[in-house]
Design a protein around this nucleic acid. Structure first.
Lengths: 142, 142
DNA sequence: TTCGTAATTGCGAATAATTGCAACTACATT
DNA sequence: AATGTAGTTGCAATTATTCGCAATTACGAA
């Protein structure tokens, strides 16, 4: 079973209705190259290639729902830029420079320890698939 | 020297001008109880107690500048809620439940390791004073 | 297959946040 | 103390996101 069907099955299991709009949005999200992330606006554009009959508000609402259900990651790339990707996408850590805005992808392996600690100490299941950390990149340090 | 003067001195050193607006915004931010964080809107209200002559756009721009200079932390509490605090505020980690929105403060000590790793591996200086992690809290797991 | 209904959508309006630009001002220089 | 100017602000316009509500529709049950 591919990512798309897997997400749809999960939603059905939770009594969500699978509308054409939702399916198109999920396809747009899943049909990207590895390491690719899309903004809400980009997703809307991709969906409109197939049909112009999907409202931008529906895109926002569907993304919120998918994030809340843990099927999609909301990735903050510095205030003004917010992107989305399915959680099947592979673990990522984004190092965002708060000075130049540059985004560096880092190995997220180290966060496993943090995740384990948070669960044992607080019973909190942290989303560590896509994490953004802010700071200053090598270039901007001088 | 207190937090406020320290921030102002740092800004002067970087050739930023200390306008009445900026001073009021910095005071509003620094004059809070430990563990308190303010939204841009709350900061604006606090400043307006002293004078109505500060535009909300100035508050946003000043906060952006302070964050970019590393003097203030921008703390994301779940998409719609963004709060600010001076970095002198003490290390924090916010565990934000993506289902119920509840925010739990956790010990941030463990992130020190992550910070060291990121610097040695990527020369990236991560802001670990105020971190938000998203996930599912104990209550919402069932 | 049809029906009933609660979930979902689209639309327009409301709200939040950002930006361009002309006017203003902090402060270094004289 | 007066001056020049680059940095900063206020305002209005723009853009991004959310919300209320009536119309529509997915899908379980008959």
């Amino acid at each position: 079973m591919n990512d798309i069907d897997q997400i749809i099955e999960t939603l059905r299991g939770k009594q969500f209705r699978i509308t054409p709009q939702r399916e198109l949005i999920i396809r747009a999200l899943a049909d990207v190259d590895e390491d690719d992330h899309l903004t809400a606006e980009e997703i809307h554009k991709r969906v409109q290639v197939h049909t112009s009959a999907v409202n931008i508000a529906t895109v926002y609402r569907t993304l919120d729902m998918l994030v809340e259900e843990g099927l999609v990651s909301r990735i903050d790339l510095g205030g003004d830029k917010e992107v989305f990707a399915t959680v099947h996408h592979g673990m990522h850590m984004h190092l965002v420079c708060r000075q130049c805005g540059h985004v560096l992808d880092a190995d997220a392996q180290i966060l496993r320890d943090v995740g384990q600690y948070l669960f044992s100490e607080y019973e909190f299941v942290a989303d560590l698939e896509h994490i953004s950390l802010f700071g200053i990149c090598a270039n901007c340090q001088q």
